[in-house]
Design a protein around this nucleic acid. Structure first.
Lengths: 232, 232
DNA sequence: CGGCTCATTGATAACTCTCAACGCAGGTGG
DNA sequence: CCACCTGCGTTGAGAGTTATCAATGAGCCG
């Protein structure tokens, strides 16, 4: 039985461009894999040997300097595509932040398959163009925003990506609650800050009544308007 | 007569995927346009109405905050593709830094043409994937590098992109000379710094004998090794 | 020779980082 | 069941880097 048939991201991932027969063919060259938090699928600078679709979970894309500084250059969610097709090396590592399930392909197999299926390449192109847009928007944050603006922007982005969970209305404002897939250090690595600066901004936002922090990983945005104003 | 026939980037741009007949068809929907330094082709946030290939010159891609801070999110050179196909709005402005010639297409026309020519879409996909890699590498610079590392990295990147001009050997080290297509403010906007910090780093590098600055726009890298070491 | 823009230089302030200590929570083993 | 250990996060004090504000200088064009 084709595992694609039961795939929860079947209609959102790039696979949605394929018909029944094509799906069977693609399924033949792919395999499922589960990753634990912290486990890497691809390492920075290694030969680009595989690509994958994210089925479930959150993963980070990251690069670092020789002396150990790290920068997270992307975060991927279910239905997103990862890896570097049509290229020899991957410029960044891919590491699971949460328990994750991915659908893995050998890059060579995938490249060959893609070249024979223009509709798949088109989907991949649209996805890549969108990712490039998002990445460029993030550059404005890294280059020009202050620590408070960075943290506020980050929380809003997280709310947008993750708050399918809860979203209640209190009075006229909307309250958003979610569980961060990031540690403080990882948030710092996304924003180009230190862990201490991130922590202080969290504390300040809580003191200002803009957010609440029930536990280390949980966030409740109690005042979306203020947070939006702080995001710059 | 087809202007593609005489196009100097004909074999490097995405058009290289097309045969003679296809080139004629593409030529029919495109037109040449010349831009003066400072002139914009696309504005941030506007509807994505056109896309283009760069024939000659250098252009910047930039976004800004409401309060006027600017971040240059990309720099494009001859044979590069600009604009946002298959999308409704462009997330960043496109402005000429030097005198520039571009080959412009209506986005709708281009989209339709591309969908009928998988080889063109494939070229565009490869280009977009490469651009995404380069953009992500730049994020490490923005998020994690110091001012001196940023400026050193910038100069090396410029040397790499522009130093076709002159490249002499003096002793055992290589000397690179080029003309910056950027003002100091624009360099600051690329690196996420202020103009004063950029200026001070230039002055320091000159004092340290790493570079020479014959004029405002000219740079000679006299010690590539030192500069590389400073780039982090 | 002004007048303009752009770049450099200097002094000071602000922000973020660094270093260090402490706190909290979860897990382990006595 | 509690004590302890360990990893992560918070908090504080101080230093360092970069931004800000202000003045000066250099090149360019009328």
């Amino acid at each position: 039985m084709s595992s694609c048939d039961t795939c929860v991201v079947r209609n959102r991932a790039i696979c949605s461009s394929l018909d029944k027969d094509e799906i069977v063919a693609l399924n033949a060259i792919g395999r499922r894999r589960t990753l634990s938090p912290g486990e890497s699928l691809i390492w920075e600078g290694e030969d680009s040997v595989l690509v994958a679709n994210v089925i479930d979970g959150v993963l980070k894309l990251s690069t670092g300097t020789e002396d150990g500084r790290e920068q997270i250059v992307g975060v991927v969610y279910p239905s997103d595509f990862i890896g570097r097709p049509f290229g020899s090396t991957s410029g960044h590592g891919v590491t699971a932040l949460t328990e994750a399930r991915v659908c893995v392909f050998s890059r060579k197999d995938f490249d060959a398959f893609a070249r024979e299926h223009p509709a798949l390449e088109h989907k991949l192109l649209e996805r890549t163009l969108g990712e490039l847009d998002r990445t460029r928007r993030w550059m404005l944050l890294l280059g020009r925003k202050s620590a408070s603006e960075k943290v506020a922007s980050f929380l809003l982005e997280m709310a947008d990506r993750l708050s399918n969970t809860t979203c209640e209305s209190v009075g006229d404002s909307v309250v958003k609650r979610f569980v961060l897939p990031f540690s403080r250090q990882q948030i710092a690595d996304v924003l180009g800050l230190t862990i201490e600066t991130v922590s202080r901004q969290f504390t300040r936002l809580k003191a200002d009544g803009v957010i609440d922090l029930p536990s280390r990983r949980e966030v409740i945005i109690t005042n979306v308007a203020s947070l939006t104003a702080e995001a710059g």
